[in-house]
Design a protein around this nucleic acid. Sequence first.
RNA 1: AGCUUUAUCUGAG
Length: 245
Amino acid sequence: RVVYSSAIDAYCRCGEVNGAYQIYEEMVKQGHAPNVVTISIFVNALAKDGKYHEAECIIENSFDGSWELDTIAYNTYIKAMLDSGKLYSAVSIYNRMISLGVQPSLQTVNTMISVYGQGGKLDKAVQMFKSAQSLGLSIDEKSYTNMISYYGKAGRSQEAFILFTKMKENGMRPGQISYNTMLNAYAIAGRHHEAENLFEDMKSDGHPPDSLTYLALIRAYTEAHEFCKAEEAAHRMQKEGISPS
RNA sequence: AGCUUUAUCUGAG
């Protein structure tokens, strides 16, 4: 069964969902019942392929009580609903998971932060972020970056920066993505002075700016109506040989 | 054997 499931996964990763399905049929014909892993693989592949409706059908059918869905299966389902934009379904699957006593993992938390963040429910996202501690999960750089991003999108750059600071206090070195995300939070809020400072910190911290770094910096200036500085930054980017995204 | 290769832009829902 492991061999069949792995083969199905391999087909899916090549975008050959149909080939995967043939293996699936053969597997069933040989008397090997599909298990939770097989289902997760299919749901994941269908969702990545944009076939959300089919993914949802499999998910719904798997709720008939005959499956012992585990943490990864629920994570896969929640992610599929997030990607399809069905945030309400994502939440309801999460609630189901909790009420059935399935342990959330850090990935569950990170995905749910995105679900709430994209749904504009920043307070819920924060709640999720904080709940990680009580679940005994240690927040990673992704969790912080995710939260920083949503604070930023809500125009709350000061709270974003508090998290950015806390991340460093907890011994995590922000990488390029974290810096870009924090920079973007300042950009949305038009805080160009803070953005400039962070831009310098980023470089001295050993992270070379990329096109997204400059995009954020330029946006910080334009949001603040500092158009000359925006143009300067754009020139500096070109001079450094970075092509715009 | 399966789940965030997470950040930036525009539009649709």
